[in-house]
Design a protein around this nucleic acid. Structure first.
Length: 112
RNA sequence: UGAGCAGGCCGAACGACUGCGGGCAUAUGGCGAAAGCCUGUGCAUGAGGAAAGUCCGGGCUCCACAGGGCAAGGAUAACGGGUAACGCCCGCCAGGGGUGACCCUCGGACAAGUGCAACAGAGAUAUACCGCCGCCGGCUUCUGUCUGGCGGUAAGGGUGGAAAAGUGAGGUAAGAGCUCACUCGUCCCAUGGAGACAUGAGGAUGCUGUAAACUCUAUCCGGAGCAACACCGUGGGAGGACAAGUGGCCGGCCCGGCCGUCCUCGGGAGGUGGCUUGAGCCCGUCGGCAACGGCGGGCCUAGAUAGAUGGUCGUUUUUAACAGAACCCGGCUUACAGGCCUGCUCAUUUC
RNA sequence: CCGGGUGUAGCGCAGUUGGUAGCGCGCGUGGUUUGGGACCACGAUGCCGGGGGUUCAAGUCCCUCCACUCGGA
């Protein structure tokens, strides 16, 4: 069961109090919540381009989490902010960038 | 074959695994009294020609006014038709462009009034600087390549976007639409046309440009927008009416503390509806030059709410352009890789 | 969804009813000073956001597009 972050206040709390990691593709903010599930939020601003480009970036970020959800620890609020390089990026590079950022935040389970 | 004109259409396709939205069906599943909800499974289905910009016109909802008129403000502008309506579309006229197919035009009225027209130029909406001509004087070599004044004139000058119809002839002291012929413009008349308009050796007349300057004429327009609006709903308010100094609760008692009822407005969280069957699409046929309309048959084709189409592969030609519904329609404008179809024009060659 | 504003020299801004595009700071050259600053004189710098139109003539008027920005529901 997946849940999403929706309210503006949730995003503001993460931006001010959460831990973050930035690389050229994405910025990731995270904070422990007191639930059993992860809650994800995606930020794709109008700076990235028109609606088609923004939709594509958001869909790919969502797919990255879905395909890798087994590796994530549970009990966190996570916000993924897309940056300019995402627009023309290949899927593989985008996936690697997101996973690298999450690893720095210790969100991933230890590799067996 | 080459160059071009007009109109219409498509907008990568197919397959495999996996994933998402709403719909329908379903279950040895879970919750519930039930309606139903959750979860799983199956089935079909799921962005555009511009979904964009939000520039016009409507539907729908609420507010205001309630018959109508005027003012203010705004919009439109040859003519005829289409349409629910339009600033849109079709046809046609006038003017302009192209050898041609065909294309372009914000195309009412400065002959109702007011304003503006820099610089240049003698002069800018009427005038007289130079010039031309006449008269009266002066000078004089005695008729004038001189000069002063008064008057006539609008032919010639050079400027300007524009100098007041153009060309030729007559006429005159010199000239002038002053007169005549032809041409051009405007108004009237006749004929044709539904009309704009066209035609006319018919009559009158000769007027700068600018209204995307004010203005005038004709026609049209109440305002706001789905975050509208309706309902459910909790917190906390505002106003009015009524009752009352009492009553109820806490408390052993005093002191003390807390608490009205009804109506209206309002609507911070959150939820549901509005929400997709509609001026709808496709096919045929009839009317019409066409836009479009009539009739008959068939079809149901996204409805999300942090907002659904992604990922990995394979094949064809490579990696595919512009680009994402958000209440719904009709248009306009803007962006766009590449490709297809139909009709037509011009040039060249061959038969 | 609705409505408003801005775009002019390197920067910040003027430019009312159309008629040769300006101010301040900055920049360059020269002077002044032993040198620098300050000061004085001279000078350069503009497709007036892009395109089209009206007009004799457009920064100004009209249409359209672009970018930035503000407000309301």
């Amino acid at each position: 069961m997946r849940r999403t972050l929706k309210k503006n206040s949730d995003f503001r709390r993460l931006y001010s109090k959460g831990k973050n990691v930035v690389n050229p593709y994405v910025a990731v903010y995270c904070r422990r919540n007191r639930e059993e599930h992860n809650r994800l939020g995606y930020t794709v601003s109008t700076k990235l381009g028109h609606a088609v480009a923004r939709n594509r970036v958001r869909r790919r970020l969502r797919e990255i989490y879905r395909l890798n959800s087994q590796r994530f620890k549970s009990g966190y609020d996570i916000v993924i902010v897309a940056r300019m390089r995402c627009v023309g990026a290949e899927y593989k590079k985008l996936e690697a960038a997101v996973l690298e950022a999450c690893e720095k935040l210790e969100l991933l389970e230890e590799q067996p």
